[in-house]
Computed example of a mutant assay.
Amino acid sequence: MVFIIRFKIMNVKKNSRIRRATKFRKNLQKFNNIRLLIHRTSRHIYAQIISKDNKILVTASTLEKKIRKKLKYTGNIKASILIGIKIAKRSIKKGILSVSFDRSGFKYHGRIKALANSARNTGLNF
C-alpha cells in the first residue's frame, strides 16, 4: 500500500514538471527565439541549444569522455558549472550570443542555477 502511494506522488511530481515545461515552451514559441535547453538526471546534466525550427545546434553533456575524465562525479554542481562553460564557448564559437533559457520545468536552484550562472559569466546572454 505504501509503495502505491509513493508511486502516485512521484507521478504527480513528474507530471507537474512536464506541465510547467510545456507551458513555458508554448510562450517561447510566440517569440520564436533560440533556446538553451537544460535536462538533468541524478547522474548527469545535459545542455542543448535549439534553433527556431527545433534543430539542435550545439550540445554539451557529462556523457562526453573529455568532460567525464575531468570529473570524479558527474551529478554535482562542479559538473554543471563545467557544462555551462562548455555550452557557452561552443555557442559563441558558432556565432550564437543570445538565447532564451529553457529549464525544462526544473526549479531554478542548485545545478540548474550553477549552469546558468557559468554560461552567463562565459559570455552567453539570456
Score class of each variant (00 low, 15 high):
residue 31 F to N: 08
residue 79 A to M: 02
residue 50 I to P: 06
residue 71 L to H: 05
residue 14 K to P: 01
residue 89 K to C: 13
residue 40 R to Q: 14
residue 34 I to A: 05
residue 66 K to E: 15
residue 115 L to A: 03
residue 26 K to T: 12
residue 15 N to E: 13
residue 76 N to W: 06
residue 51 S to Y: 05
residue 8 K to P: 07
residue 72 K to F: 07
residue 26 K to G: 11
residue 101 F to H: 02
residue 87 I to V: 11
residue 106 F to P: 02
residue 110 G to D: 10
residue 14 K to R: 05
residue 20 R to K: 05
residue 89 K to P: 11
residue 44 H to T: 10
residue 114 A to F: 05
residue 63 L to A: 01
residue 112 I to F: 02
residue 123 G to M: 05
residue 100 S to R: 03
residue 10 M to E: 13
residue 80 S to F: 14
residue 26 K to I: 09
residue 29 Q to C: 10
residue 33 N to M: 06
residue 88 A to Q: 04
residue 125 N to W: 06
residue 79 A to L: 02
residue 13 K to E: 13
residue 51 S to L: 12
residue 69 K to V: 14
residue 84 G to Q: 13
residue 78 K to A: 04
residue 120 R to A: 14
residue 29 Q to V: 13
residue 71 L to Y: 08
residue 69 K to F: 10
residue 21 A to L: 01
residue 83 I to L: 11
residue 64 E to N: 07
residue 23 K to R: 04
residue 88 A to Y: 06
residue 83 I to V: 15
residue 4 I to A: 00
residue 9 I to N: 07
residue 103 R to L: 04
residue 18 I to M: 05
residue 91 S to Y: 05
residue 111 R to N: 09
residue 116 A to N: 03
residue 85 I to P: 01
residue 102 D to M: 07
residue 42 S to D: 10
residue 34 I to T: 13
residue 28 L to G: 01
residue 88 A to S: 13
residue 76 N to F: 06
residue 23 K to L: 13
residue 33 N to Y: 03
residue 13 K to N: 05
residue 20 R to A: 07
residue 121 N to H: 10
residue 102 D to V: 13
residue 112 I to V: 15
residue 94 K to W: 08
residue 92 I to H: 04
residue 59 T to Y: 00
residue 5 I to N: 06
residue 41 T to L: 03
residue 73 Y to N: 10
residue 43 R to Q: 05
residue 9 I to A: 12
residue 38 I to Q: 01
residue 14 K to V: 11
residue 102 D to R: 02
residue 31 F to A: 12
residue 81 I to V: 11
residue 21 A to T: 02
residue 35 R to W: 09
residue 41 T to Y: 00
residue 121 N to D: 15
residue 45 I to H: 00
residue 45 I to M: 04
residue 90 R to P: 13
residue 44 H to A: 06
residue 76 N to I: 06
residue 40 R to M: 08
residue 52 K to F: 01
residue 7 F to G: 07
residue 52 K to A: 02
residue 116 A to C: 05
residue 87 I to E: 06
residue 26 K to Q: 11
residue 111 R to I: 12
residue 5 I to P: 09
residue 57 L to F: 03
residue 11 N to E: 14
residue 112 I to W: 02
residue 103 R to E: 04
residue 42 S to R: 00
residue 78 K to Y: 04
residue 45 I to R: 00
residue 69 K to T: 15
residue 94 K to F: 13
residue 48 Q to A: 10
residue 97 L to F: 15
residue 101 F to Y: 04
residue 15 N to D: 14
residue 11 N to H: 01
residue 102 D to W: 10
residue 124 L to R: 00
residue 38 I to P: 07
residue 86 K to E: 15
residue 30 K to V: 14
residue 7 F to N: 13
residue 5 I to M: 06
residue 92 I to M: 14
residue 40 R to K: 10
residue 33 N to Q: 02
residue 110 G to I: 07
residue 103 R to P: 12
residue 30 K to N: 02
residue 123 G to N: 08
residue 118 S to R: 00
residue 77 I to V: 14
residue 54 N to R: 04
residue 81 I to S: 04
residue 72 K to Q: 12
residue 71 L to M: 14
residue 104 S to H: 01
residue 86 K to H: 09
residue 70 K to R: 09
residue 116 A to V: 13
residue 116 A to T: 11
residue 22 T to E: 03
residue 124 L to M: 01
residue 125 N to Q: 08
residue 65 K to D: 13
residue 69 K to H: 12
residue 71 L to E: 12
residue 73 Y to C: 11
residue 58 V to W: 03
